[in-house]
Amino acid sequence: MSDDRLTIAGIDFRSRLWVGTGKYKDFIETQKAIEASGADVVTVAVRRVNITDRKSENLLDYISPKTYKILPNTAGCYTVEDALRYARLARAAGISDMVKLEVIGDEKTLFPDTAGLIEAAKILVKEGFIVFPYTNDDPIVAKRLVDIGCQVVMPLAAPIGSGLGIRNPYNLKILMEAVNVPVIVDAGVGTASDAALAMEYGADAVLMNTAIAGAKEPILMAEAMKYAVWAGRMAYKAGRIPRKLYATASSPIEGML
Protein backbone atom coordinates (compact mmCIF):
# COMPACT_ATOMS: atom_id res chain seq x y z
CA MET A 1 0.00 0.00 0.00
CA SER A 2 2.99 2.28 0.43
CA ASP A 3 3.11 3.03 -3.31
CA ASP A 4 -0.65 3.60 -3.40
CA ARG A 5 -0.38 7.33 -3.98
CA LEU A 6 -3.05 9.75 -4.91
CA THR A 7 -2.08 12.22 -7.61
CA ILE A 8 -4.12 15.32 -8.42
CA ALA A 9 -2.95 17.93 -10.91
CA GLY A 10 0.54 16.48 -10.80
CA ILE A 11 0.72 16.77 -7.00
CA ASP A 12 1.39 13.55 -5.05
CA PHE A 13 -0.57 13.06 -1.86
CA ARG A 14 0.71 10.62 0.72
CA SER A 15 -2.48 10.28 2.74
CA ARG A 16 -6.04 9.49 1.75
CA LEU A 17 -7.39 11.06 4.88
CA TRP A 18 -7.50 14.84 4.66
CA VAL A 19 -8.46 16.94 7.64
CA GLY A 20 -9.75 20.35 8.55
CA THR A 21 -8.23 22.50 11.27
CA GLY A 22 -11.37 24.06 12.75
CA LYS A 23 -13.19 23.51 16.05
CA TYR A 24 -10.25 22.32 18.12
CA LYS A 25 -9.72 23.44 21.71
CA ASP A 26 -6.35 25.02 20.89
CA PHE A 27 -3.45 24.83 18.45
CA ILE A 28 -1.69 22.09 20.44
CA GLU A 29 -4.70 19.82 20.17
CA THR A 30 -5.03 20.69 16.46
CA GLN A 31 -1.41 19.74 15.91
CA LYS A 32 -1.61 16.47 17.85
CA ALA A 33 -4.84 15.36 16.18
CA ILE A 34 -3.46 16.08 12.73
CA GLU A 35 -0.28 14.18 13.52
CA ALA A 36 -2.31 11.23 14.76
CA SER A 37 -4.46 11.26 11.62
CA GLY A 38 -1.43 10.85 9.37
CA ALA A 39 -2.93 13.41 6.99
CA ASP A 40 -0.60 15.38 4.76
CA VAL A 41 -3.29 17.79 3.61
CA VAL A 42 -5.05 20.23 5.91
CA THR A 43 -7.74 22.72 5.05
CA VAL A 44 -7.67 26.23 6.46
CA ALA A 45 -10.06 29.15 6.34
CA VAL A 46 -9.25 32.61 4.99
CA ARG A 47 -10.05 35.38 7.45
CA ARG A 48 -9.03 38.83 8.68
CA VAL A 49 -5.82 38.73 10.67
CA ASN A 50 -6.13 39.66 14.33
CA ILE A 51 -4.65 43.15 14.44
CA THR A 52 -5.51 44.04 18.00
CA ASP A 53 -3.52 41.31 19.76
CA ARG A 54 0.10 41.44 18.69
CA LYS A 55 0.87 38.27 20.58
CA SER A 56 -1.88 36.22 18.92
CA GLU A 57 -0.48 32.96 17.63
CA ASN A 58 -0.65 31.76 14.09
CA LEU A 59 -2.04 28.39 13.04
CA LEU A 60 0.86 27.99 10.62
CA ASP A 61 3.32 28.04 13.56
CA TYR A 62 1.79 24.70 14.54
CA ILE A 63 0.90 23.30 11.14
CA SER A 64 3.92 24.10 9.05
CA PRO A 65 3.47 24.53 5.29
CA LYS A 66 6.81 22.76 5.01
CA THR A 67 5.31 19.59 6.45
CA TYR A 68 1.70 19.84 5.31
CA LYS A 69 -0.01 20.77 2.09
CA ILE A 70 -2.21 23.70 3.00
CA LEU A 71 -5.55 23.76 1.23
CA PRO A 72 -7.32 27.09 1.79
CA ASN A 73 -11.09 27.00 1.53
CA THR A 74 -13.78 29.55 0.76
CA ALA A 75 -15.94 28.44 3.67
CA GLY A 76 -18.63 30.92 4.56
CA CYS A 77 -18.97 32.28 1.03
CA TYR A 78 -22.52 32.45 -0.26
CA THR A 79 -21.93 34.20 -3.57
CA VAL A 80 -19.69 33.63 -6.56
CA GLU A 81 -18.11 37.07 -6.00
CA ASP A 82 -17.22 36.30 -2.39
CA ALA A 83 -15.81 32.88 -3.25
CA LEU A 84 -13.63 34.41 -5.97
CA ARG A 85 -12.43 37.15 -3.62
CA TYR A 86 -11.46 34.67 -0.88
CA ALA A 87 -9.80 32.29 -3.35
CA ARG A 88 -7.72 35.09 -4.84
CA LEU A 89 -6.70 36.36 -1.40
CA ALA A 90 -5.72 32.83 -0.37
CA ARG A 91 -3.47 32.52 -3.37
CA ALA A 92 -2.03 35.98 -2.79
CA ALA A 93 -0.93 34.83 0.67
CA GLY A 94 1.59 32.85 -1.28
CA ILE A 95 1.21 29.31 0.00
CA SER A 96 -0.33 27.52 -2.96
CA ASP A 97 -2.51 27.65 -6.04
CA MET A 98 -4.89 25.10 -4.58
CA VAL A 99 -8.29 26.19 -3.34
CA LYS A 100 -11.14 24.23 -1.87
CA LEU A 101 -14.01 26.02 -3.49
CA GLU A 102 -17.20 26.28 -1.50
CA VAL A 103 -20.15 28.33 -2.66
CA ILE A 104 -22.75 27.72 0.00
CA GLY A 105 -26.39 27.84 -1.00
CA ASP A 106 -28.27 27.69 2.26
CA GLU A 107 -27.46 28.42 5.88
CA LYS A 108 -29.46 25.60 7.41
CA THR A 109 -28.09 22.73 5.33
CA LEU A 110 -24.86 24.32 4.09
CA PHE A 111 -25.55 22.51 0.84
CA PRO A 112 -23.51 23.82 -2.06
CA ASP A 113 -25.00 26.22 -4.57
CA THR A 114 -23.94 24.09 -7.51
CA ALA A 115 -24.82 26.67 -10.17
CA GLY A 116 -22.64 29.22 -8.39
CA LEU A 117 -19.97 26.59 -7.84
CA ILE A 118 -19.68 25.79 -11.54
CA GLU A 119 -19.57 29.49 -12.42
CA ALA A 120 -16.84 30.26 -9.86
CA ALA A 121 -14.85 27.11 -10.69
CA LYS A 122 -14.80 28.04 -14.36
CA ILE A 123 -13.27 31.44 -13.61
CA LEU A 124 -10.71 30.13 -11.12
CA VAL A 125 -9.56 27.30 -13.41
CA LYS A 126 -8.97 29.92 -16.11
CA GLU A 127 -6.91 31.93 -13.63
CA GLY A 128 -4.67 28.92 -13.04
CA PHE A 129 -6.05 27.71 -9.72
CA ILE A 130 -6.17 24.02 -8.86
CA VAL A 131 -9.82 23.90 -7.85
CA PHE A 132 -11.12 21.35 -5.33
CA PRO A 133 -14.88 21.85 -5.63
CA TYR A 134 -17.13 21.01 -2.68
CA THR A 135 -20.21 19.70 -4.43
CA ASN A 136 -23.37 17.70 -3.98
CA ASP A 137 -23.54 13.94 -4.55
CA ASP A 138 -24.92 14.73 -7.99
CA PRO A 139 -23.13 12.90 -10.84
CA ILE A 140 -24.22 15.41 -13.48
CA VAL A 141 -22.83 18.39 -11.57
CA ALA A 142 -19.62 16.42 -11.01
CA LYS A 143 -19.34 15.86 -14.77
CA ARG A 144 -19.88 19.56 -15.45
CA LEU A 145 -17.11 20.41 -12.98
CA VAL A 146 -14.72 18.05 -14.75
CA ASP A 147 -15.80 19.43 -18.15
CA ILE A 148 -14.77 22.93 -17.10
CA GLY A 149 -11.36 21.77 -15.92
CA CYS A 150 -11.61 20.58 -12.32
CA GLN A 151 -9.12 17.76 -11.77
CA VAL A 152 -10.91 16.44 -8.68
CA VAL A 153 -14.43 16.56 -7.25
CA MET A 154 -15.43 16.58 -3.61
CA PRO A 155 -19.00 15.40 -3.10
CA LEU A 156 -20.61 15.52 0.32
CA ALA A 157 -21.69 12.34 2.11
CA ALA A 158 -24.19 14.24 4.26
CA PRO A 159 -24.62 17.85 5.43
CA ILE A 160 -21.46 19.44 6.82
CA GLY A 161 -20.94 18.65 10.49
CA SER A 162 -24.04 16.44 10.62
CA GLY A 163 -22.20 13.17 11.26
CA LEU A 164 -24.97 11.33 9.40
CA GLY A 165 -22.56 9.24 7.31
CA ILE A 166 -23.12 8.36 3.68
CA ARG A 167 -26.75 9.19 2.97
CA ASN A 168 -26.79 8.17 -0.66
CA PRO A 169 -24.20 5.50 -1.42
CA TYR A 170 -25.74 4.76 -4.83
CA ASN A 171 -25.40 8.34 -6.01
CA LEU A 172 -21.81 8.39 -4.81
CA LYS A 173 -21.09 5.18 -6.71
CA ILE A 174 -22.67 6.53 -9.88
CA LEU A 175 -20.72 9.76 -9.43
CA MET A 176 -17.44 7.84 -9.10
CA GLU A 177 -18.21 5.98 -12.31
CA ALA A 178 -19.29 9.14 -14.09
CA VAL A 179 -16.03 11.05 -13.73
CA ASN A 180 -12.46 10.12 -14.59
CA VAL A 181 -10.85 12.26 -11.88
CA PRO A 182 -10.23 11.48 -8.20
CA VAL A 183 -13.29 11.71 -5.96
CA ILE A 184 -12.84 12.88 -2.39
CA VAL A 185 -15.78 12.39 -0.07
CA ASP A 186 -16.12 15.61 1.84
CA ALA A 187 -18.42 16.28 4.78
CA GLY A 188 -20.90 14.27 6.77
CA VAL A 189 -18.69 11.51 8.18
CA GLY A 190 -19.57 10.73 11.79
CA THR A 191 -17.32 7.89 12.83
CA ALA A 192 -14.67 5.48 11.58
CA SER A 193 -17.03 3.07 9.83
CA ASP A 194 -18.41 5.93 7.70
CA ALA A 195 -14.89 6.71 6.48
CA ALA A 196 -14.15 3.04 5.82
CA LEU A 197 -17.40 2.70 3.86
CA ALA A 198 -16.61 5.72 1.71
CA MET A 199 -13.26 4.17 0.84
CA GLU A 200 -14.81 0.74 0.22
CA TYR A 201 -17.19 2.34 -2.26
CA GLY A 202 -14.14 3.53 -4.16
CA ALA A 203 -13.54 7.07 -2.96
CA ASP A 204 -9.97 8.20 -3.53
CA ALA A 205 -9.83 10.03 -0.20
CA VAL A 206 -12.00 11.37 2.60
CA LEU A 207 -11.93 14.88 4.04
CA MET A 208 -13.32 15.54 7.49
CA ASN A 209 -13.12 17.97 10.37
CA THR A 210 -16.00 17.79 12.82
CA ALA A 211 -15.93 13.99 13.18
CA ILE A 212 -12.44 14.31 14.66
CA ALA A 213 -12.47 17.74 16.32
CA GLY A 214 -15.92 17.16 17.82
CA ALA A 215 -15.18 13.71 19.26
CA LYS A 216 -14.75 13.37 23.02
CA GLU A 217 -11.13 12.35 22.39
CA PRO A 218 -10.12 14.05 19.14
CA ILE A 219 -6.61 12.60 19.02
CA LEU A 220 -7.86 9.04 19.49
CA MET A 221 -10.55 9.58 16.87
CA ALA A 222 -7.95 10.97 14.46
CA GLU A 223 -6.00 7.73 14.78
CA ALA A 224 -9.18 5.66 14.38
CA MET A 225 -9.92 7.56 11.16
CA LYS A 226 -6.43 6.88 9.86
CA TYR A 227 -6.91 3.13 10.22
CA ALA A 228 -10.49 3.26 8.92
CA VAL A 229 -9.37 4.96 5.73
CA TRP A 230 -6.52 2.48 5.32
CA ALA A 231 -8.80 -0.50 5.95
CA GLY A 232 -11.45 0.80 3.58
CA ARG A 233 -8.90 1.45 0.86
CA MET A 234 -7.34 -1.99 1.20
CA ALA A 235 -10.74 -3.70 1.19
CA TYR A 236 -11.68 -1.77 -1.95
CA LYS A 237 -8.51 -2.89 -3.68
CA ALA A 238 -8.90 -6.46 -2.43
CA GLY A 239 -12.47 -6.63 -3.78
CA ARG A 240 -15.33 -7.71 -1.55
CA ILE A 241 -17.31 -10.92 -2.03
CA PRO A 242 -20.78 -10.64 -3.52
CA ARG A 243 -23.75 -10.57 -1.15
CA LYS A 244 -25.85 -13.75 -1.17
CA LEU A 245 -29.09 -14.53 0.58
CA TYR A 246 -28.18 -18.06 1.67
CA ALA A 247 -25.18 -19.64 3.34
CA THR A 248 -22.21 -21.08 1.49
CA ALA A 249 -20.20 -23.51 3.61
CA SER A 250 -16.58 -22.59 4.18
CA SER A 251 -15.60 -26.10 5.27
CA PRO A 252 -15.65 -29.00 2.76
CA ILE A 253 -18.36 -31.68 3.04
CA GLU A 254 -15.82 -34.30 1.89
CA GLY A 255 -14.35 -36.45 4.69
CA MET A 256 -17.35 -36.04 6.96
CA LEU A 257 -18.50 -39.08 8.97
Binding site: K23, V46, I51, N58, G76, N209
Partner: peptide
Protein backbone atom coordinates in the same frame (compact mmCIF):
# COMPACT_ATOMS: atom_id res chain seq x y z
CA UNK B 1 -7.16 47.94 3.83
CA UNK B 2 -7.79 44.28 4.57
CA UNK B 3 -5.08 42.05 5.99
CA UNK B 4 -6.01 38.43 5.50
CA UNK B 5 -4.44 35.22 6.78
CA UNK B 6 -5.23 31.59 7.47
CA UNK B 7 -7.10 30.35 10.51
CA UNK B 8 -8.36 26.98 11.66
CA UNK B 9 -11.21 25.86 9.50
CA UNK B 10 -12.32 22.84 7.67
CA UNK B 11 -15.87 23.38 6.83
CA UNK B 12 -18.40 26.12 6.60
CA UNK B 13 -19.79 25.17 9.98
CA UNK B 14 -16.58 26.34 11.60
CA UNK B 15 -17.61 29.81 10.72
CA UNK B 16 -18.57 31.91 13.69
CA UNK B 17 -21.48 33.62 12.17
Amino acid sequence: VEVIGFIGGGRSDDDER
